[in-house]
Amino acid sequence: MKIISPCSLKQSGILGINSRNRDYIARYNKRKYYPYVDDKLKTKLLADVHGIPVPALKSIIRTQHDINLLDPVLSELNGFAVKPSRGSGGKGIWIIKEQKNGSFIKSSGAVISKNDFKRHLSNIVAGLYSLNGSPDVVIVEDIIRISSVFSDYSYEGVPDIRIIVFKGYPVMAMLRLATRVSDGKANLHQGAVGVGIDIATGSAVNAVWFSKTITRHPDSDNDIRNIKIPGWKKILELASGCYEMSGLGYIGADIVIDKTRGAQLLELNARPGLSIQVANGAGLIPRLKLIESVQMPFGSAKERVRFSIRNFGNY
């Protein structure tokens, strides 16, 4: 079994779980702010207040009774997404791309009858997907249409951009591409491709699939190194603004790009994972240390993003 020596890990500045938990999450994330990120509905409402773009909220289902009142709302929508507000890891999320003859067609192409759809909503409200089985709320929101930039690089799911934001500074970014193996999901350990993104330019620097370096998407065979995310600076500013919004010092912001509406915040994560370092081929520690050493913090997201672009670019 091949392993790496702790010395060379340290040299590369890799952040480990123990250090992340104690030196960053425990120190910079106050417990009382957790509910704002663990509950997607709260995140959404808070984002609205702070002027951060999110997929438009179409309806909220709080009780079993509300499910029957949904029909007039849905009849006006073509595509939409239903999510459990307190679900984790993407569980219970259904993306409906269109409605046809009273049944629903999921993004994977599966056809769902109206009764099955209602049962799913009922399960969410009963708490099937919430963390400890407590009753939950269903969010019905606008569907994200995949931007043409990514259409050659993703299998079914819409790619999302994970940006680690430390004390308001974007420090590292990764694009997650769904694959056939990951079944349209964007979690790396389920088989999605992680693409490291240069903070300065928004272009791909490195890609990993099942922790092996790759250059082409496993399904479409397109060269991943050609990816360059448009409007990168705006995306960084959006992510940076999540600091003021959530009050959390160490977060992962998940951002998607809609074909017409542009960048939107999907959700925040108070315990972001560490594989972003593998995707970027770079460690987090030097970047985090640099920000901790800044004496006079910048007030606005724009200034913080300028600092990050100057310091964390790859070239």
């Binding site: 790496i4 702790p6 890990l9 890799i14 480990g16 490195n206 370096t213 081929g281």
Partner: peptide
């Protein structure tokens, strides 16, 4: 203790090559 876990030495085994 904030050092690396042994499992991380395996998890990040290919890291050096990427760097």
């Amino acid at each position: 203790y904030t050092g690396y876990r042994l499992s991380e030495l395996y998890r990040f085994r290919d890291f050096k090559a990427a760097a």
